[in-house]
Design a protein around this nucleic acid. Structure first.
Lengths: 116, 116
DNA sequence: GCAGTGGTACGTTGAATCTCGTAGTACGAA
DNA sequence: TTCGTACTACGAGATTCAACGTACCACTGC
């Protein structure tokens, strides 16, 4: 017999790595891809969790799932489910603690006029 | 009839990209590889140009040539020839100007005890 | 001249990465 | 229940990357 408790449309957490165990080259590699860097830029601009589908990425759904997974597994973002959709959020504070100044410097970088 | 001028064992320059044209994700990708990051760490520690063969890399000669080329083409290092060997040097000042704080933050990052 | 040193260029191989389609789950609304 | 939405997991193909061996070049010393 199962419980009567009805789950609230709760934030269900997903497994996230401990940032202390992430070597810096993994983070660099994760951000060394234009699409993923764009996602991170959007998240930083927004300053709050964003629905995966609200990025307007010009790739298929499965491709964006893949990139979000890479970002999550390298400790850059965290994700949680709420209702029917999944939200992503920059792990800004933790990143700043683990790699001081790194994210700031990357986000501050301007793209060249003709970005390759 | 050719010239009598004997070339001094001059620093012959190699082609290097203009950092203003380098998007940040290229630099991140270049540094997102453990071997290349190790090279950059060594150069930063040394604080002066280093002979390619003095890094003690545990890969073949052609592999290290490949990695040095990647670093050079992404604007991270410069190389010049002097006599019979080729020296590599961090483009520290230029990088700091183009991406303020980036290199510092990356070099400051400590590796986890059990780096993957 | 010849051999050794220090490096590049090229081609290849195997692994990783990126992209996608398909199929499937979980939820909310009609 | 049926539909649509939002997303995942899996498998496959194409492309890129990392590592290597070989051949080669330029220079030094004998």
């Amino acid at each position: 017999m199962s419980t009567h408790v009805r789950r609230a449309p709760a934030k269900k957490a997903l497994p996230h790595p401990d940032l202390r165990e992430i070597p810096v080259h993994l983070v660099l590699r994760a951000l060394g891809e234009p699409l993923r860097l764009g996602i991170v830029r959007s998240l930083a601009r927004a300053g709050r969790p964003m629905n995966c589908s609200s990025f307007g990425l010009s790739v298929s759904k499965s491709t964006s799932t893949y990139h979000f997974k890479v970002l999550r597994e390298s400790g850059v973002i965290s994700q949680f489910e709420e209702g029917t959709s999944r939200y992503s959020e920059l792990r800004e504070t933790e990143l700043e603690q683990r790699f001081p100044g790194l994210l700031t410097a990357i986000l501050a970088a301007e793209e060249p006029a003709a970005a390759e």
